[in-house]
Write a protein that binds this DNA or RNA. Structure first.
Lengths: 190, 190
DNA sequence: ACCTGAACACCGTTCAAGT
DNA sequence: ACCTGAACACCGTTCAAGT
């Protein structure tokens, strides 16, 4: 790793840490520089303005995400290949998460807001979602004849549930049950 | 309306306008004061700090939202009472919206981020979602024996779809079709 | 009760200057 | 190629002072 790569990786890690802890308004150029242990001017040498820093942070974040997700998905694949029902349940338990459990979800929420005012960052987020959808389709295609339907149902639902799932008339268990039924009906029918 | 009510309403309207146009980082105390035509100090008399301004803005925004939604829902109710299928389609067309069409959705995205760092604002958002879910349950209960299921499926899905629906393997029409089938199967079964 | 302006520490960005 | 510090206009907040 070149010096440039090392320094920028440090900067982006600190940026993500601050974003997670304090939100996008907490990510100031001076704060990032301080936590990284460099001067403001030096930070600006690597990232000439705040927008560029956010864009790079976004790409860095998704590179990490992709590693995590791919290893999680491969885990599920090995253990539960046997039964279709067990597989679906495992997948649902993984995807349908309460907003309180935030580990990386808070960063997604910040990105959804930042997307509105930064087209390049928005394209990075959309690219991630397209990749994510493709992986899921590929994984699920072993278990159902309509993986595109299942994925098109689950990904948006998981994002929305994370925001306001706690305010729904049904409890999480009932919702997982409902989704499980919907998917097995889809799978049976065709 | 008292003077206080008039001034605060003006302030909050301008706050929402700026939030929609420039995002939460664009909502500065000085900018809000300028657009409202009052001094910074005077704005601070009505809203002692930025957090209080955001909280009041959030409540004001949802009061407007509730009016809009209730009138939209009553419209759907009158025209399509006749056929259950027609009613569901109308409802889906209303709820499943692409992120590009943003009218008020951009404000929701900002609020989802602000919720993470302001518990009072978060409670206001959750209260809105609970009300929204209750109205939908009530409206839908005429057409299906399991309105809680339908609502618990549709609201999170609509929020998630607005963010990343464009990145799914299925087109919007196919998705509306899929959801329509799912709901009519739910309705038939019981 | 309502409104004002000065002053504080902090912010992003620019720039001329160093190695 | 990499790093620095001073200076700019802007920010939220505090405060003492007015009507």
């Amino acid at each position: 790793m070149s010096k440039r790569e090392n320094v920028t990786a440090d900067i982006l890690k600190q940026t993500i840490a601050i974003l997670k802890a304090e939100g996008s308004s907490g990510v100031t150029m001076r704060q990032v520089a301080n936590k990284t242990g460099i001067t403001l001017s030096n930070l600006q040498y690597y990232f000439p303005d705040r927008t560029k820093l956010f864009q790079a942070m976004c790409e860095f974040f998704f590179r990490q995400c992709e590693k995590t997700i791919l290893s999680e998905l491969s885990t599920i694949n090995v253990n539960d290949r046997a039964s279709t029902n067990g597989f679906i349940k495992k997948l649902l338990e993984m995807l349908i998460v309460d907003g309180i459990n935030d580990y990386d979800h808070s960063i997604f929420r910040e990105l959804w807001a930042l997307m509105l005012r930064d087209k390049e960052l928005a394209e990075t987020v959309h690219r991630f979602y397209r990749n994510y959808a493709n992986w899921l389709v590929q994984l699920i295609s072993q278990f159902t004849p309509c993986p595109e339907k299942v994925v098109s149902l689950l990904i948006p639902y998981a994002d929305g549930y994370e925001i306001m799932g706690a305010d729904l008339p049904l409890e999480r268990n009932a919702i997982v049950e409902m989704l499980s039924e919907i998917i097995s009906q889809m799978t049976r029918k065709k």
